[in-house]
Each structure stands twice: as C-alpha cells, then as structure tokens.
Design a protein around this nucleic acid. Structure first.
Length: 264
DNA sequence: ATGACCGCTCTAAGCGGA
C-alpha cells in the first residue's frame, strides 16, 4: 500500500498541486491536514473526478483533516475527532479503515509558546492521542498514524537546534509525549528506513528558508510494527515545495508490501 | 536583523502558522 501524508495549507488553494500529485504518484490513500475548509465546501466532486473518495473532518477557516482513498478502496468505519481532545471544534483528527488498516490523519496543535495555554493543550492532545492509539491497538488491526505532529523528534530533524532552544516543537515535554505515542508500538517510517538522513518536511515561507535548506521534520507516518517490518519506501517529495503556489510542507510518501515478504 | 511569507477573514490590518 502506498500512503501519503501532506499538510496542504488550504485544500482550496492547493487543489491544483494535489491533483498534479495524485496523477504523478497514484497513492492508494492520503492523509491531509490543514484543509482549511468548511465541510460543505470540501472538493468532493473534483477529487472524485481524479479517482478519489474522501472522509473529511472540517473545522472551517483553520485546521481540518481528511483521509482519501483511490477508487476501489473503501473508507470504512469513519470516525471524526479524538476522544477527550481539548478543542474538538478545531477538527484535528479523523480515522477510517482501508483494506483492513486503521488510518488516522492528524494535525497536532502548534502550541504557540512554551508554557502558554496553547502549549498545555498541545500536550493534552498528544496524551489523548496516545490513549486512543492504545485502544486502537487492542483491536489487533494494523495502524497508521500519519500527519503533522508539530514536534521534531530529534535534533537531527531541526536545521539549527541551538536556535530552537526554548521554542515549541523541540522541548523535552513535546518530544517525550511523541515518544510515549511511539512506545505504544508505532515506528517512525522515514527514520526506520533512513536512520541518519536529514529529511525535512516543512520550511518557513519567509526569508528563502527552503532554498537555504532550513527546515524541520515534523510530518510523520507512524506505522504499527507489523507494517513497519514490511516498509519498502519512505520519501519526501521536495518538488512539491517548489513551483507555483506550494504548501510550506512537502508530502511524505510511504510504501509497504501488502503481504509479509517471504524470507529467502 | 526582534524582519522577511502565506492564507484566512468583519477585504483592513490582524491573526495564526512553526
């Protein structure tokens, strides 16, 4: 199965780039974040014309997440929202099952400033996510938690760790909450296949950060171990951070073998 | 350089993003 996670920063503005991406990469499923649309404005018809169906959790002008599946794959048992999340109206979590795999698209809160109320909500969201993942793991179904985690897991994932000391996205509390999420039995797909590689997924629009190589790796695909053991690909599609009207995030493409690979 | 961009909305100047 080929899965993509991409913070599109407005589905309305990004639709031409998304359609270009679907044509080029033909993913089976996609997890989108920051769709920034009302539910009744979600572009179901345009996506259907491109061969994709969607389950969206739309919160209006901010946030919003969605799961897409190509024609022929059903999006079963959709669930909008995360139990006990701090701000449900912000539409930051959506689930569905495709071909027996439980999929989550999430957009973790930014946190704004360390020790602010928004930072506390970010940690609360990550704690709720961990509880939900534990519950989902008990079903025994393979799981993929994909999205914009708004946490850079390690200093390797930050262009200038010294400059980020005291900022959100890198604090021990945030990294600890992300690690606790992974300790439920999830594997960071990109890091599994590329243990030492710098692989940013976000670059500030300002000051030419992309062209200067100044980014963060904050968009992750976390795979349950039975899927992670079948990983064949985890790559960041940097061309979609260039060109006309790019998102400030690049898509992450992850692929795993549909059945356990036979040992030689 | 404590800046710089982008998308949103009460279509102006402000907010949020990370």
């Amino acid at each position: 199965m080929r899965l993509v996670t991409w913070n599109v920063n407005s589905l309305k503005v990004r639709l031409p780039r998304l359609l270009e991406f679907l044509d080029e990469h033909a993913p089976d499923v996609l997890a989108l974040q920051e769709t920034k649309t009302e539910a009744d404005a979600f572009p179901h018809a345009e996506l259907a014309a491109a061969g994709y169906r969607a389950v969206d959790h739309s919160g209006g002008r901010w946030a919003g997440v969605a799961l897409l599946a190509r024609d022929g794959l059903e999006l079963e048992a959709p669930q909008l929202g995360l139990p006990d999340e701090p701000t449900p109206e912000e539409a930051r979590w959506v689930e569905a099952t495709v071909d027996g795999v439980r999929l989550v698209s999430t957009y973790v809160p930014n946190g704004r400033e360390v020790d602010s109320p928004w930072y506390a909500q970010k940690l609360d969201f990550l704690a709720a996510a961990r509880r939900r993942v534990l519950a989902l793991r008990e079903t025994g179904a393979p799981l993929v938690l994909a999205g914009d985690m708004n946490v850079a897991p390690a200093d390797l994932d930050v262009y200038d760790p010294a400059a980020f000391v005291g900022s959100t996205h890198v604090t021990p509390a945030e990294r600890g909450a992300l690690a606790a999420l992974e300790e439920t039995g999830l594997v960071d797909a990109f890091r599994r296949l590329h243990p030492d590689e710098v692989g940013y997924t976000w670059w500030d629009y300002r000051a030419g950060h992309f062209h200067r190589g100044l980014g963060l790796r904050i968009d992750l695909a976390l795979l349950s171990t039975e899927l992670a053991d079948r990983l064949t690909r985890a790559g960041i599609e940097r061309p979609y951070r260039r060109g006309t009207k790019p998102s400030d995030h690049a898509p992450l493409v992850v692929e795993w073998a549909d059945r356990p690979q036979r040992s030689a």
